[in-house]
Simulated assay, not measured.
Amino acid sequence: MISVATARQLVAENTDRMAPQVILLKNALGKMLAGDIRAEADVPAFPQSAMDGYAFSFDDWHKGGALKISGEMAAGAGKEQFVVKGEAIRIFTGAPVPSSVNTVVMQEKTRMVADGLLIEDEQLTRAANIRPAGSEIKKGELALKAGARLTPAAIGFLAGIGISQVVVYPDPVITIIITGDELQEPGEALKYGQVYESNSYTLSAALANVGLSKVQVVKVKDNPQDLTSAMKRALEGSDLVLLTGGVSVGDYDFVIKAAEDCKVQTIFHKIKQRPGKPLFFGKKEPAILFGLPGNPSSVLTCFYMYVLSALELLTQRPLSLKTLQVPLINSYTKQHTLTHFLKGWYNGAGVSILDAQESYRLSSFAQANCLVELDIDARLYGEGEKVVIHLL
């Protein structure tokens, strides 16, 4: 068996980022840019009115004198108007500002009189309320750097400067293989010896929670030939394969043998931790494979501690759980010299270790907002002692 630290290091060393792909900007939410983006033109491409009002030449304006209204410019106007000395035009937000004028006054600071437009803005300055050409970004300037995350604002910004496609690290294709003759679908009646299958629901939800939806679920009976066939297909068509169950040493635990038959390189099998000690990690280029223990709590713990780290490397997205050091509210005694991951509740000041920590029970996980990591060697943890937590 290896330590938790060694397992984390081996996952990092054996997981490569996905090959970049060109995709439509509208499909890029949450993904990471794989290359710099530079503006292809000035934005805006022309001087633009920042508000509804009137455009005129500042030098023609004499406080107290009226300006004649000679026309209007709306957003999207396809033809420039020429404004002569002593005149103004009605203009609207986003409209091009004609080259013959240089100032816009907001409509609330004006008043119409018999001989034209009076401007009543003592603070008005030359070039007021005009967005200069290139004021958002100039042609050739860096818009977003490689490694930037495409948030809603970033996507809107890129769309606003005319970008329709981006080069990103794509979503991995993920196959979840569920093994176990005893498993029954939720909603169906249980027969003697059956339990409801929850791991595919847990993993699919955990993946969706980090924005990954290219997921297929395959359910396999406890049959070595069927499992080997399913694993072979998954490795050929996936970037990441997750198996649950069958990674221990029982008579019906076939995952390790199936991995060998599929020519999967074993990186590690078994970690000095609880829950999730039998965790398997291997690779067959270009795919990586995790064999997760079958117990529900073990599955989710291993997902958060190892699979999420691999997904972060594959996608280059910040997916790993935030880690803090906080004091224990209640004391705890470990029964084994293994690293423990325990369901906990962090109240902002300290953490309580919850009841129902057994690996087959998800009830405490459903209530937890963190995992408490207890070191491999220490056995007794007193109230107030600092511990590491991973926020869920």
Rank of each mutant, 00 (worst) to 15 (best):
I2L: 15
I2T: 14
R8P: 00
Q9I: 08
M18V: 01
L29S: 11
G30Y: 00
G30E: 03
M32D: 02
D36M: 13
I37H: 10
E40F: 05
A41F: 08
A41Q: 11
A45G: 14
F46A: 11
S49E: 08
S49F: 05
A50H: 01
D52N: 15
Y54M: 06
K68E: 15
I69R: 09
S70L: 10
E72N: 13
K85N: 09
K85T: 12
E87S: 15
A88E: 09
I89A: 07
S99P: 01
S100I: 06
Q107Y: 08
K109A: 14
R111L: 12
V113F: 04
D115M: 03
L118Q: 09
L118V: 10
I119E: 04
Q123Y: 10
L124D: 05
A127G: 02
A127M: 07
A128F: 01
A133N: 03
S135R: 01
E141V: 05
A143Y: 01
G147V: 09
L150W: 07
A153E: 09
L158G: 04
I161L: 15
I161H: 05
I163A: 07
S164Q: 14
D171T: 06
V173P: 00
T175F: 01
I177S: 01
L183Q: 06
P186A: 07
E188N: 14
K191Y: 06
Y192W: 09
Q194K: 15
V195N: 05
Y196Q: 12
N199H: 07
N199E: 05
A205P: 00
A208I: 02
V215R: 03
V217W: 06
V218H: 00
N223A: 10
T228A: 15
M231N: 00
K232D: 13
R233N: 13
V241R: 02
L243D: 01
V247Q: 03
D251N: 12
D253Q: 04
F254M: 11
A258M: 09
A259L: 11
C262E: 07
Q273H: 08
R274N: 08
F280A: 06
F281G: 06
G282Q: 04
K283A: 10
E285D: 15
F290G: 03
G291H: 06
N295I: 02
A310Y: 01
A310M: 05
L311K: 06
L314Q: 15
T323F: 02
L328F: 10
Y332E: 00
Y332S: 00
K334W: 04
Q335A: 07
K343V: 00
G344E: 02
Y346V: 03
Y346H: 11
N347S: 14
N347G: 10
A349Y: 05
D355Y: 08
Y360N: 13
S364N: 06
S364M: 05
L371H: 02
I376Q: 15
D377N: 12
D377S: 12
K386R: 14
K386M: 15
V387T: 06
I389G: 01
L391F: 06
